[in-house]
């Protein structure tokens, strides 16, 4: 009856792996496609452990973009970890330093999300252990799937256009994020701006588009607030 909270966390992640595995496989394929060696691909996956940021970085490395731009693009995408970090920190304050370090390193959208869901369902969960179980399990699966991707990237012919799986992965990630009108305004504005500036050098279009999307979304939110008399 008394299942370890670590195991409970890991088990809760199982259904989410259906989404994690293909995404992670795609990062492995993308690493190979941008010219990385197997060691480079596997190590960078362990060092960064952030699918969206890795895909952007690999893409820009392949284009020969400037290092500062690559760094900025990936870090911008990873800023969301600040929020998760703030959300998890109160639950981890009594854990030892090693668990806090491991918990921070393995922090992911999925592990954070499942822990928050679990807290709503069972407020008495041993949150730190549940979270660590979920986060570490996810890490292991992610790295194995990335290795599989590296292998596939080496062995599958480029005629299969596996590179197209990258925008498809991003699309699959962005659709659930468009849950409110202001987020939809942000995403659509950014999409149109990105097309408009797609031929600018150094991925400048990416930064312009992201900034316009954020601005449009926030303006729309303000407008909505005012119209509702707040």
């Amino acid at each position: 009856m008394n299942t370890s909270p670590y195991l409970k966390g890991a088990r809760a992640m199982l259904p989410i792996m259906m989404g994690v595995i293909p995404m992670s496989v795609v990062t492995g394929v993308a690493a190979v496609n941008c010219g990385m060696t197997t060691t480079e691909a596997l190590l960078s996956s362990v060092i960064m452990y952030a699918a969206a940021a890795q895909l952007v970085a690999y893409e820009m490395i392949g284009n020969g973009a400037d290092m500062v731009l690559i760094f900025s693009a990936a870090i911008v995408l990873n800023l969301r970890f600040l929020l998760y970090s703030a959300g998890m920190a109160p639950h981890m304050r009594d854990a030892g330093w090693a668990k806090r370090l491991a918990g921070a390193y393995c922090l992911s959208d999925q592990a954070y999300g499942i822990t928050m869901v679990q807290l709503q369902k069972e407020p008495k969960t041993d949150t730190a252990r549940f979270y660590l179980g979920a986060a570490l399990f996810m890490w292991v699966i992610y790295q194995c799937a990335a290795a599989l991707g590296v292998f596939l990237g080496r062995s599958i012919s480029p005629d299969l256009s596996l590179d197209f799986a990258v925008p498809l992965t991003f699309s699959a990630l962005v659709v659930p994020l468009m849950g409110t009108p202001e987020l939809r305004v942000a995403a659509i504005t950014s999409a149109i701006t990105a097309l408009w500036f797609a031929d600018l050098p150094g991925n400048a279009g990416f930064f312009i588009a992201t900034f316009s999307g954020i601005t449009a979304g926030m303006l729309f939110r303000e407008y909505g607030k005012r119209r509702n008399g707040r």
Binding site: L77, L183, A186, S190, A191, A194, L195, A209, T210, I214
Partner: peptide
């Protein structure tokens, strides 16, 4: 707003 905007910007081109 960051992931919604950044990911859309990456997809289109």
């Amino acid at each position: 707003f960051i992931p919604a905007s950044a990911l859309s910007a990456l997809v289109m081109p």
